[in-house]
Design a binder for these strands. Structure first.
Lengths: 252, 252
DNA sequence: CCGTTTCTTGCATGAACCGGCAAAACATGC
DNA sequence: GCATGTTTTGCCGGTTCATGCAAGAAACGG
């Protein structure tokens, strides 16, 4: 049996059932489980499936999974980042928090006994904050974009313009020393710019895969970042670049 | 059974029923309750559900209220009301939906293949609508009031003023022939009045306990109600009063 | 207040995973 | 034909992961 044949059969079953089991494939193909695992690893590397313990599941096709998929990606890491980011908060402060799974993790990490005023255009962040009794929550309305999980548009901009904040938690973007902070969507970038303009300091918490990447729309320069929260394993050279532009680096 | 499969099934049931029971899941999956509890903990950590004693509920603010404050019977009743209320909708219509558990049930009852434009100041309603691909969702921002689950205030009023709708689903209020539609909160009533003013028709779906009761703040007269969705067991005399003022009565 | 149910934590076990290694199969060059 | 290099495959260790069980803590319902 050709390697390529197995790959094709795996793709087929994945399209049909949505999942495959390593052991089952091994006996069906008459090869060792190691070989199947190798196949699965390769296909996962090519983005054609998502590897899970015991087999693999379909990666993209499942609708509505795009956002929850991302949030599952590095839960552990994002929770750590969030805890570190929350350490930057002081009682009584006012915040802007925009969208992104990392920002949602940050919202969930805010302790119950902290008094804050938070304005957000992310429904996920808003939901996480509704449980907190001492948080004054201001929802920034507008046209809701499912892919982003946030509200954008003229209404959102108008709402942001009326507010000011001590800190802005800017999420889900590309981060590059030369190009600064960048976003994937034009309207999203507009809202981020407005929030940045009306806040005294910008906080960015990112996983390593966001470092040294850039998206089409520019939000702010690298020198606008006050606090940068990163994983312990973040590349030191990149961090030094940001530090030289005034960013204070915190390790999760 | 793959761990990932269980997670997916839990998410599915959560989307359908709004709640899951640990014991029930364990027997359905053929694993120990500990394993299910671990699953629930992980999903809760990823923000995909909210852990409660005995199982879990959907992470939207919707769930907390339904489980802790309302009886199981009321949930079923509201679901029936919601199904009937959704029957009033036509494709392509634009709606205002404000807060209340009944309105959240209505939002959940909207079929996936219905094209609508919906503006809401309720986070619970908004959360329920994020999954629907054909619904253009407009979030009406403002100061969030935890007790109501909705946004109110000047910002909300300004956002409503810019919109118009075919129908307004008015929720969670007192209903009395003499005093009309009434609300418990001044700011809430203001928003409801604004929505009523900018919509062509008002729909009210209520359980029996709301009929013939009144709250302090007046929203609209009884003659402003276009559609009234009630339980089959609703007192006929009260309904006749509303019908004589122009309301069309629908039984769930 | 107490009994019951549910939850968390720690631990043991077996299954699944990964990296490396060597044999086999295959292709290539002389 | 033979040697060489490449690819594929199976196997072996050490490691990680998922699961169930047990004990103690916490939450619920009288």
């Amino acid at each position: 049996m050709l390697t390529e044949e197995r790959h094709q059969l795996i793709r087929n079953q994945l399209a049909a059932d949505g999942r495959v089991l390593a052991g089952e494939l091994a006996s069906r193909f008459g090869v060792s489980e190691d070989t199947v695992r190798r196949d699965l690893r390769e296909l996962a590397k090519a983005g054609q499936l998502r590897r899970v313990y015991g087999g693999a599941v379909a990666s993209a096709p499942f609708a509505a999974a795009t956002l929850s998929q991302r949030s599952r990606h590095a839960v552990e890491e994002k929770t750590r980042l969030a805890t570190a980011a929350v350490g930057l908060l002081g009682a009584g402060q006012s915040l802007f928090i925009d969208g992104g799974t990392t920002n949602e993790a940050i919202a969930r990490a805010i302790p119950r006994d902290m008094e804050l005023t938070v304005a957000t255009n992310s429904l996920g962040v808003a939901s996480a904050l509704t449980d907190l009794p001492l948080v004054e929550l201001i929802v920034l309305g507008g046209r809701y974009v499912p892919d982003l999980g946030t509200c954008v548009g003229a209404d959102t901009l108008a709402a942001v313009a009326q507010l000011g904040a001590d800190l802005f938690f800017l999420g889900s973007c590309g981060l590059d020393v030369a190009r600064g902070v960048t976003a994937f969507d034009s309207a999203e970038a507009e809202v981020k710019r407005a929030m940045a303009k009306n806040s005294a300091g910008i906080v960015i918490a990112v996983t390593n895969d966001k470092l040294a990447t850039a998206a089409p729309y520019r939000v702010a320069g690298a020198d606008a970042i006050r606090h940068l929260v990163v994983e312990k394993s973040a590349p030191a050279a990149t961090l030094a670049d940001f530090q030289s532009r005034g960013a204070q680096v915190h390790f999760a």
